[in-house]
């Protein structure tokens, strides 16, 4: 199961610890009929899970809840790591999150943004982790460019580098292929493939190519796909 040889920056640091997510009656309502409808699921490492559904079904909302960024208005989500339940605020080291809403500090360079995150995460070799994450996403030559000067595709690569920076066992990727060219998509698929061996990936997407990466699927209902 586990890949042999030295780890790269984008491989998960999960060792033998199992991570399990179990949602019971989980829902989040922004307004009447808007948001994530009640859902139950259970997933665990290793694996890749696609979260699919029409626009407005709450794919991004579900990822934010799993990341501990949003408190659900109904139900529970048990996030356990090696048998211990992690509170929302204690999940930072365990998850890597990339989403279109993730913005960086435009006045800082790509490397400075990641170095900030690496230091805040308490990584022992922060510079090494930053260089490896940028290299894995093909951004080494843009490391010293300010984020405000990066294109949409480069910013998306930086989001993925940020998610994988601290080698988290769980990757939460919201539309990871958006704005990416073919090379960027291939790199993303390689990250997901590396994570599959030991960790867990939740992939919010409606892209057929990205859906094919998944071993299982959580289909969300409602949104614009629900005529009611």
């Amino acid at each position: 199961m586990s890949a042999a040889g030295p780890r790269t920056a984008v491989e998960p640091d999960v060792a033998s610890s199992t991570i399990a997510l179990e949602a019971r009656g989980l829902a989040h309502r922004y307004a009447r009929g808007r948001g994530l409808q009640r859902i139950d699921f259970a997933v665990r490492t290793p694996g890749v899970v696609a979260i699919t559904g029409a626009n407005g079904t709450g794919k991004s909302t579900l990822l934010r809840i799993v990341a501990g960024l949003l408190r659900p208005s109904e139900g529970t989500l048990a996030f356990t790591h090696a048998g211990r339940t992690l509170a929302p605020l204690a999940r930072r080291a365990t998850i890597g999150f990339a989403s279109p809403e993730l913005a960086f500090y435009p006045e800082l360079t790509a490397a400075e943004n990641l170095r900030f995150a690496a230091t805040a995460h308490g990584l022992a070799d922060g510079d090494g982790a930053v260089a490896a994450a940028l290299g894995a996403m093909g951004l080494s030559s843009r490391a010293r460019d300010r984020v405000g000067a990066l294109s949409s595709g480069m910013t998306q690569r930086l989001r993925l580098a940020f998610a994988a920076l601290h080698r988290p066992p769980v990757l939460l990727l919201d539309e990871p292929g958006s704005h990416l060219d073919d090379v960027g998509r291939a790199v993303t698929e390689a990250i997901v493939a590396a994570q599959r061996a030991n960790g867990l990936v939740l992939l919010a997407t409606n892209e057929p190519r990205e859906r094919e990466l998944a071993d299982s699927r959580i289909e969300l209902r409602g949104g614009l796909g629900d005529p009611a």
Binding site: A67, L69, L89, R92, I95, F97, S99, E101, L102, A103, F104, Y105, P106, N113, F116, A117, A120, H121, F162
Partner: peptide, 16 residues
């Protein structure tokens, strides 16, 4: 306003 609060919250806890 800069939409960087998600990055900040993913990097560090509220008290730090």
């Amino acid at each position: 306003e800069g939409h960087t609060q998600t990055l900040l919250r993913l990097a560090a806890g509220p008290t730090p």
